[in-house]
Amino acid sequence: MLRVDGLNAHYGRAHILADVALTAAKGEVVVLIGRNGAGKSTTMKCLIGLLRPTSGEIRFEEKRIDRLAPHAIARLGLGYVPEERRIFTDLTVMENLEVGKRPPRPGLQPWTAERLFTLFPNLGEMRNRPGGRMSGGEQQMLTIARTLMGNPACVLLDEPSEGLAPVIVEQMVETIRKLKLEGLSVLLSEQNLHFAALVADRAYVIEKGRIRYEGTMSALAEDEAVRAAYLSV
């Protein structure tokens, strides 16, 4: 589904990503764990084309995407849910969903607003409310719903639990599990190991722009040494 090899990225002269390599298979939930500034969000931005990598190869369903514009990547079926939510606060819930709308994708059941409202019942109760008048947890759900309207085959979730109350984080766990059941691939970046352990199949640990560890989530959970070295828990 998604394959990254030898990815390097710079901000100005600062080297942010060094030879990052990772994969995500169809229907798999993969987590990229690391502290703030380790390169998680930068990796996500490279994948969706918001930041142009200096070198490396990104393939999505076998097609090279590392030189494409964000909209072209999104149209291929890679959905992006940014950190810090970034909903359109002046637009209503329905209008936010409209912005994300793309044609159905063969082999996947298409998302409609109604079908999303069964996944996020809260949103269905506030269809005409402007995004700016929703709580943080509702906004986070709306960003995910908005991305799903594009009928992506794979979703990038950048720090979905950051700044949310524990009860909302528990809802997020349920949501990601349902997406997996729909057959979607999910690549999420996280700092919260407890949260990652509840949803992810496999994990990559990133530190100072390099992948330091790769393995199943359960193996990582048992590997005290890796956790102590890179995650400092």
Binding site: A69, H71, A74, D90, L91, E95, V99, T147
Partner: peptide, 20 residues
């Protein structure tokens, strides 16, 4: 709707598949 969305956050509109 796309214009109004882009007025707030044009990068995000691009990442949602709209040719900015």
């Amino acid at each position: 709707v796309l214009v109004r969305a882009a007025t707030q956050d044009r990068d995000m509109v691009g990442a949602l598949g709209v040719n900015q």
